[in-house]
Design a binder for these strands. Sequence first.
DNA 1: CGCCGTATTGAGCGCTCTCAAGCTAGGTGG
DNA 2: CCACCTAGCTTGAGAGCGCTCAATACGGCG
Lengths: 229, 229
Amino acid sequence: MPINNISNAACSYCNCSPHCLIESNPFNRISQLLVKRTRHFARNETLCVLNDRFQNIYIIKQGAVKAYQVDINGHECIHAFYFSGEMFGYRAIHTGHYISTVVALTDTLVCEIPYDQFVDSLQYNLELSKHFLSLISRQLSTSSYVDIISAENRVAAFLIDMSLRIKRNNPMQELVLPMSRQDIGNYLRLTAETVSRILSRLQKNKLIIVEGKSIRILNPEKHQSLKIS
Amino acid sequence: MPINNISNAACSYCNCSPHCLIESNPFNRISQLLVKRTRHFARNETLCVLNDRFQNIYIIKQGAVKAYQVDINGHECIHAFYFSGEMFGYRAIHTGHYISTVVALTDTLVCEIPYDQFVDSLQYNLELSKHFLSLISRQLSTSSYVDIISAENRVAAFLIDMSLRIKRNNPMQELVLPMSRQDIGNYLRLTAETVSRILSRLQKNKLIIVEGKSIRILNPEKHQSLKIS
DNA sequence: CGCCGTATTGAGCGCTCTCAAGCTAGGTGG
DNA sequence: CCACCTAGCTTGAGAGCGCTCAATACGGCG
């Protein structure tokens, strides 16, 4: 696997193409014009650091990352996980500096797109402008888990979301979470102990089967009803 | 005060101009091209309704609004307040339908901008594209209050934020909150009772002076330290 | 095998919620 | 002018959920 492999292939040739967030005709039309770069990061490697100068938007070709800030108590506040096909970095557009540190949860391949060049290309393509605005707006329209009051509903909603976003190529429909219980807790504003207890409880109630990082969801419908507190 | 007064004045003549979020040279240059409309809403009147077709982006010239969804338990989840000079509606870009109901908290004047026309105008002005993306990105980069664990810190952070966003023309630096305690609670995911108790506690600790909806912040520095849990 | 990081489980505490009772301000009518 | 009403706000008592602290179990790896 080549590190920092420079490539300028059209999006249609990307291995992430079937489920890429920005995969769409308008983007493909423009994609040939953009110099993109595929980069590889090992588990625990840092993709970008809080306060570094904003330069690139990233799309994950393969793998998973977490984006977090460390608060004054040293607590790691995770505000997002991103998976295969998803885009990140755009939250830095306003400040010009990354507003979180992003770390790979597993071996991860990303597509790196220089923002300056990308935004300049918008003037040649109104459709791309519209599409990009729509993508960003999508992030604004998805409500956060912390809106959900009870811890159990929050974990259930998290599992449903993960099961929809993590691409799986196994027949058993099992979900393999790339993050630790602590990460899940930091994301949902719960402690790792609470996350663990709730997973046990959901298993006892025959809603899921837990085997370490691998989780099988037995009754997605039941979970749906849990989702909204 | 004319209702639904049609106007197409340049932004520079708007009474909101001194503190408008989208006030900037690039926008002013384009603003003459856009048909805008000034509309008036009385207290408790609805500006837009959840699931209605997305047509306009709004900028508040004067007043205040709350944006909320009602969850399946009938609980009103407020996800934002907007004040004079601020923009809303852009969260609907992705879905094409408004994702919340917006209601006036006081008598409110808004500037209504048709999105289709606005987005078409982007192709004539790259600077406007960049500026608009930056504005939207700003919304993504501001973290939510619910990230703050303790209720006291959440309320303190809320008060600091309000004091920065609500424009005042009084010398005593007093903050007049346009929303009820219940609204504050719905926004911070606390009960109205808890909000009330915490305001009393902050007053007892000589951090604020509460007189109904009017609040004076005595030690902004002390609050800052409260802000991050 | 022992080691270490992660996950699970338990006991007790504290914060916020629930439920309920008073309180206040503003409005209406006599 | 006061009596009365109502909605919103405040305050109190008790309960429950999630946190803290601590012990134990698991799993990968030398």
